[in-house]
């Protein structure tokens, strides 16, 4: 009996000691993980560094470096097809991510932190449905369906393509928002309720602000997914609706010029800027 107590005491002592010298024994440390993280970043940036470098290459061949120049940026800017395609992609991605994030936020509130109710699994399955179908199938199916609507109503336009994008963006926007909601501490909301806040006040003052990182994450994910889509866009797009990835596919087939590298670099800078803004905004919120 006394032995056990002794052992227990020793343990506690070690505990205290450990706590005292945490810098030397970091419980969070795992060997090699930092290395992997650095490797991961290198792996991610390797192709991109190459891309950016070659966008400043004078030589029209993308393999041979001659000298530094801005020629391809000028050329890309004057290439109307590239410019239109890039703007169209941004426009679609903007509206698709906006709409899908709204829908996903609402759906996440209704499906997270609730008592299980009839239809919860169904709702969950429906929201994730676009993830379950291979894109080519969604593409063909949507094409046939929209063609029917177009012929029946006589309404044409970019709305169809945006709608198709909204559909597959919803599950992507939904995931981070849901994850954020699930992780949120209920204490604040309970406290608000205890202080006689109405559910709406609680939502507006407590829940929603706490959800913002998740919502931003969801919106960004949706934006990227929309910006990258090829298969569905190829099939659903109407006349004059050539997005940047569609332009790219054609170019890869028949020979790439560094103009594309230039546009990609421009996209990259724009997104870096956006992410930086998000980054600063969320950080300020925390302080």
């Amino acid at each position: 009996m006394s032995e056990v107590t002794a052992a227990g005491e020793t343990l506690t002592a070690t505990n205290i000691m450990r706590r005292g010298r945490r810098p030397r024994f970091d419980v969070k440390h795992q060997p090699g993980f930092g290395f992997m993280a650095v490797l991961c970043v290198l792996m991610l940036y390797g192709p991109i560094v190459l891309l950016v470098t070659y966008s400043f290459n004078q030589n029209p061949s993308i393999t041979i470096w001659t000298s530094f120049s801005f020629d391809w940026y000028v050329k890309a800017y004057h290439n109307e097809q590239i410019r239109d395609a890039a703007f169209l992609s941004l426009k679609i991605a903007f509206f698709a991510s906006l709409a899908s994030t709204c829908a996903a936020t609402m759906a996440a509130i209704a499906t997270t932190r609730v008592k299980p109710y009839r239809g919860l699994t169904l709702a969950y399955t429906i929201i994730n449905q676009p993830l379950m179908v291979p894109e080519i199938v969604t593409g063909i199916a949507t094409l046939v369906f929209f063609a029917l609507i177009k012929q029946m109503t006589g309404i044409y336009g970019l709305g169809y393509l945006i709608t198709a994008h909204i559909v597959f963006c919803i599950p992507f926007a939904y995931m981070p928002i849901r994850a954020r909601l699930e992780d949120m501490d209920l204490t604040y909301e309970t406290a608000a309720a205890d202080l006689y806040a109405t559910p709406w006040q609680t939502f507006k003052r407590i829940t929603f602000p706490m959800m913002i990182p998740g919502i931003l994450g969801g919106a960004m994910l949706a934006f990227v997914i929309s910006l990258d889509d090829v298969v569905i866009t190829v099939l659903v797009s109407g006349p004059g609706e050539e997005t940047f990835p569609l332009y790219m596919i054609g170019a890869i087939r028949r020979g790439v010029t560094p103009e594309l590298n230039a546009v990609a670099t421009a996209f990259l800078c724009l997104s870096a800027l956006l992410v930086t803004v998000f980054f600063l905004v969320t950080r300020k919120k925390k302080e």
Partner: peptide
């Protein structure tokens, strides 16, 4: 003029056959 591209006869046909392509 607006110009869009496809990369196979079949891709073009799928779109044209569905109808309402606007081209």
């Amino acid at each position: 003029v607006t110009l869009d591209s496809y990369d196979s006869n079949d891709q073009m046909l799928a779109k044209i056959k569905a109808g309402g392509s606007g081209y």
